[in-house]
Amino acid sequence: MQVQRSFTSGSSGTADVAGAGKLYLVGTPIGNLEDITYRAVRTLREVDWIAAEDTRQTRKLLTHYEIHTRLVSYHEHNKQASGGELLRLVEEGASLALVSDAGLPAISDPGADLVSEAVQRGIAVVPIPGANAALSALIASGLSTQRFHFAGFPPRDKKGIAAWLEGLQRQEGTLLVYESPHRVKRTLEAMLEAWGDRRMVMARELTKRHEELARGLIRDCLDWLEQQPPLGEYCLAVEGAEAAVASAAAPAEAAWWSALELEQHVTHYEGLLGDRKQAMKRAAADRGMTRREVYNALL
């Protein structure tokens, strides 16, 4: 049993001094430089060392806030060599802050290994909360926030992603996934094939100038990516199995398009998308038809 008390006697959780022999996990902005706490800035100024995933990226943040703490590199490719040395410094009395390129360290980055080893060595690990892309996307998604499952980055190979999607298929909470612009379309296509059409949100460039949240069904988001080439890193929030079943069980007569003729249905989407072919594809998905069936019906 290991019990950690992060603050010295008489100090408060908002006014602790960065003490020796501790590892601080400091949340940094995910885009907008203002998304950092006073406590995070003060901690970065007071520790002896800052370990960064990308020192060039972190240097921009430190320069902006006039922080002159010594900066060292800690990333996926040097973690075996540098991790032990960094923790040795902490054991000898130094204070170390760990940061990632953006957001909270140790989430889908090599910082998790450093934290695990620090805990095994009995080193105090102190979280300094900050911005997080997955939770930011979740709270703005409009999907359920009662339960959620963070799944990180999908596997890159076809066999791996198929097994990964199968393992997540019955998760009842909202699913949160990170994906790059180069693979987001392929991942959505795999989700559609494995899970069927679910409600989702594609969030990109969160807190930055070009922040965008695209909401709809998976098919809608694929159509959107056809019109708007993917740019920036994405966080995908997809409704869980329970919500998907509830959506599918809704009576067909309640659908917004139920009073429309097929031609009107297609015209509606054509006005939104500016493309007749994509409009027929969307109308077909709504009505459980193939695009060929819609095309033939409109001849």
Rank of each mutant, 00 (worst) to 15 (best):
S247G: 00
A284T: 07
D286S: 04
P155I: 08
T174L: 03
A124M: 05
A163L: 12
V245P: 00
G31T: 13
Y234D: 00
G93F: 08
E261K: 04
W257H: 08
G274E: 07
M191Y: 03
L206K: 01
G10W: 10
L61M: 04
C221H: 02
M1Q: 04
I67Y: 13
L175P: 00
E253H: 07
R282I: 04
V201Q: 05
A246D: 08
S141K: 08
A248M: 10
R156G: 15
L272K: 02
V119M: 07
A249L: 14
A249F: 11
T28P: 03
H182N: 01
P129H: 12
E193T: 13
A81S: 15
A284N: 10
G21D: 10
P154K: 02
T267H: 12
A97L: 10
Q2S: 13
A279Y: 01
H210E: 08
A15K: 06
Q146F: 05
V115A: 07
Q4F: 15
R147G: 12
G152V: 14
Q171W: 01
Q264C: 02
L225S: 07
L176P: 08
E91A: 14
I218L: 07
A151K: 00
L262S: 06
C221Q: 09
Y295P: 00
L213H: 15
V17A: 06
I107L: 14
C221E: 10
